[in-house]
Design a protein around this nucleic acid. Structure first.
Lengths: 218, 218, 218, 218
DNA sequence: AATGAATGAGGCTTCATTCAT
DNA sequence: AATGAATGAAGCCTCATTCAT
């Protein structure tokens, strides 16, 4: 693979060390995604990044280190950007559904990253936490606005998140098309107590295009 | 581990070969549960079953073989028993919620099995299929009875299943108590279009105790 | 494989133990032939003979035991029969060429045995000795009769034998047809000093059909 | 084994990796020679080369890889050198007998290599091909020159080659002395139709000394 | 910063052999 | 006589990690 990945692209103006580090992260994402965490060996990551294996350890303590680093950056970056992109949306119903849809949209536009996120979601608590922080805020907001009629607690948030991941899985597997985000968002809103009619309307409303990028600085 | 596992118990009156095989399956369940599928090596399974590694291959072709065997038996057994236990329930709302709750109840009563099921759900398509078959029947029934107002397709079924698994995770992790089943069942019913009041009532109704056991025959 | 092998056939009127032993030997020959000595495991031999692995050790000390037993019996049997079949041939040129041709004829009529013999020839000194004893007698006879003009020593005998084996190899591999025996016999006679014309005539003379069998008694 | 083998010697001025690779090849030759191909395990080769087993896989894909590499290098090197050493011999009778004698001389001067070649001849078609190419050219030349009176086909070439190998075996086993090459060359020439007198003269003519070495470059 | 050879533990699997039944 | 479960050594291979250059 020669085309630079997202990290390499973001680091293209940084020092050589940073660029090598970025190439390693891109390589790791690709292999985690295509073959899973267990199948990714340091040797193969290094090879895919076009460095020798010893170089890996200049940049990361071990495999776990690169995995958590990547997962954390991606998750933090995405959630923050999603949040920013929705800065001008006040209505919690719209925010909630837009966040779910945007997340799936992004993750399936970059299938390698999508798969990596999907797998990481079940392995890395920190990644979940990061995503959930924003999610909680929106759900709480909906409760304050009187839009949601279920108690907002950790259990609900986990349930909600797992629905999103399930839709992401379907989207990445190819069993669902671009409407997967809307479908699951509608179900989520119904679950939260939004009327079926409004749920449908909010979940299928056209979203303005936005550009998401990956943060590479620590 | 000295106390016999479920398979070993079920096989205690069978031949020596069956008993060893059962010990291996119990050991595998334990390790899958505690450390995940990837962490389970044939060596460790054999060690946990108190046999030398070579013996493993007398009974199973490889790790996949024991994993699918275990997964299939457990899933088939549980779903069949759940189905039988609900033979006299006609109402789809009640059936659906009872199935979710019973499943979580069983899986968390046997935490090792619960974890193994949880992990396996994402790895073994065949296991999902088996569970989903029963699920689909109940959801379709509800649609016929006019109780559910969403279209019943594979996407919905997967979403529904992932909610159950998420609740199982919370239950096994200890972040939720025995009411996890009712909580998620209520959310599922709401999502399906059942009125909040009825959803609450059905999801929290007391369930008569049943006895679930593990099938050991092929 | 259900059709009885040569040993089983020869043992069909003996006691049960002898019949099992014979089945094991047939199975061993088949596997040695098809997959080579190293590939033949006791388990597979036993399985092919339709007995459990433990039974093998009632009849043979180990794998080497069955291999040498089989090789010795076959070689001794064949050479003795070849010798008997040629009892009325006095001329050494004719004897020598007939022995080579008969040997190849037999070994390629029973390809499993042929291959086993071929492989064993390089591993078992005892087998070589047995064959060579008869060979030496014929070559010495030819020297006495003045037909051969090279000194008959062990070196010559080994060279002569390796030519026969090389032809057997070609015959079994399918790169040569039924005339392989005649071709190599002609070359052997030329080497020994027989005139080209006479070598050709003797090597291609039609041979009367004979029947070779396998001795099973110890 | 402490004295450097032929490969190690040829690689003594190369990089560390090449030197280790050479040590592994020498170790492999030694074990193939002393115990045969089947008996050589990667572990033992590595041990004999004084590296841990994992190192083996840095240099060779598997046992077959090292075996074919070694066999190919040896065969190609020897045949090429033999051919060069005979560049100024035109007469096919002399060439043929010199090639046989030189080959045996070389292989028995390096007994480990000799044994390895002997064993490999029966396993590696590619090795046979390489040797046979040169052989065929000389035999055809003899036919053109009218020196040989048998048809030169693959069967003859294989027969001829097996005679050489048989002599090599005798030489390596110690049952024959330095004259093994001449003895078998004489027999080969007789077989080809050269007159006994000329065969004897050509086969026993003194050969000028040459130096054969081992090619280590790829 | 980077290299890349080497390590050694550990995973998978097969096999000859033993032994209680 | 035969069974067949169990053993444990040994083979193959991969991998995370270290270290001299």
């Amino acid at each position: 693979m020669n085309k630079p990945g997202l990290f390499a692209n973001a680091a293209r103006n940084l020092g050589k060390s940073e660029r090598t580090r970025a190439r390693l992260m891109d390589a790791a994402v690709g292999i985690f995604a295509r073959e899973g965490y267990e199948a990714a060996s340091v040797n193969r990551i290094a090879q895919a990044a076009d460095v020798v294996n010893g170089t890996f350890y200049l940049h990361f303590k071990d495999k776990d280190d690169i995995a958590t680093t990547v997962a954390y950056r991606v998750a933090a970056g995405i959630t923050r950007q999603l949040d920013e992109a929705m800065a001008d949306i006040d209505d919690a119903v719209d925010r909630t559904s837009a966040a779910t849809r945007r997340f799936i949209e992004f993750a399936s536009a970059q299938p390698e990253w999508g798969w990596a996120l999907f797998r990481a979601a079940w392995s890395f608590r920190s990644l979940r936490e990061s995503v959930i922080t924003y999610l909680r805020a929106d759900l709480k907001r909906g409760a304050r606005q009187g839009a949601f009629t279920v108690p907002i607690d950790d259990f609900l948030i986990d349930t909600f998140a797992s629905m999103t991941l399930s839709a992401l899985f379907a989207r990445l597997s190819g069993t669902e098309g671009p409407e997967a985000g809307s479908k699951v968002a509608e179900l989520q809103l119904r679950m939260l107590g939004v009327s079926p009619a409004r749920a449908k309307k909010a979940a299928w409303r056209k979203l303005p295009p936005i550009e998401l990028s990956i943060p590479v600085a620590e």
